[in-house]
Design a protein around this nucleic acid. Structure first.
Lengths: 134, 134
DNA sequence: CTACTGTATATGCTCATTATACACAGCAGC
DNA sequence: GCTGCTGTGTATAATGAGCATATACAGTAG
């Protein structure tokens, strides 16, 4: 028995012209899949070739994404076999999310104040967004 | 009497290695000055040359910043005279801030949910940030 | 051997940034 | 009014980093 006894089918969509580099979009969506449980520890990611073909980008772009994810400690790639999700990837992503949330909220506080918004109004806007997203 | 009967002294600091392009940092800080009242309608911005010398960047970098600000409707530059703040620049910047806040809060909501945070916890974090910044 | 996996090299494109030379505005002095 | 100096913004060509590509190379497993 190998590491993968189930076919990993993941849905990723990248939109060029979105400002963000393609490899960043791929990384973001893989992280989201990890957090949502759509991608679990030990599972194999799509092959760099097949994934690149599906997304209509070059191999290098998917390689870049996987390479970054490996540097962040989320996956491990081994030549000839594939790229596999590490144990407890959710912990790492969660920490990244918390940092990002803190940075966003700082910006919201600073610019909200500059725009003359009250804390109550900001909280209200946050609640709306929170209820909007499924 | 000309457009400028007072010397405009503005404090701007750019940090290279911050990830953001120098011209973006200049734009951001000028907008912040407009919102804080440190830069009022009719006032003249520093000359592209002097500003570039002070910030230790090239003229082109300040030109790029001023050019962007002009495209956003915040300033008007006239050859041989200088770059001047338009009327009601605060309205435009405020709208930009509101859009940015909305985008940030959407991201906070999505990633906060994914990280298992409750609305209450997010509001609490927002309140902390709000009270921290002067 | 064959068919799958990841990897390395050389290339082009875009964008941020630079140095240098150019063009217009305004004021001083003849 | 003209001349010239010094302030202002402007245009051109060149450099460097980062994103993306195609193509050829290398390991794994049946």
């Amino acid at each position: 028995m190998t590491n993968t006894d189930a076919t990993t089918t993941i849905a990723v969509t990248i939109s060029l012209h979105s400002g963000l580099p393609a490899y960043e979009q791929i990384k973001e969506q893989i992280k989201a899949l990890i957090m949502s449980g759509g991608l679990n520890a030990g599972e194999m990611l799509p092959s760099v070739r097949g994934f690149a073909r599906d997304l209509k980008v070059s191999n290098i772009t998917t390689i870049r994404a996987y390479s970054d994810l490996e540097n962040e400690g989320l996956v491990t790639t081994v030549q000839g076999r594939g790229c596999f999700v590490n144990a407890l990837p959710g912990e790492i992503v969660r920490k990244q999310y918390l940092d990002e949330i803190a940075a966003n909220l700082t910006n919201v506080a600073v610019k909200g104040k500059a725009a003359g918004l009250t804390l109550k109004e900001l909280k209200q806007k946050l609640e709306e967004k929170f209820n909007e997203c499924d």
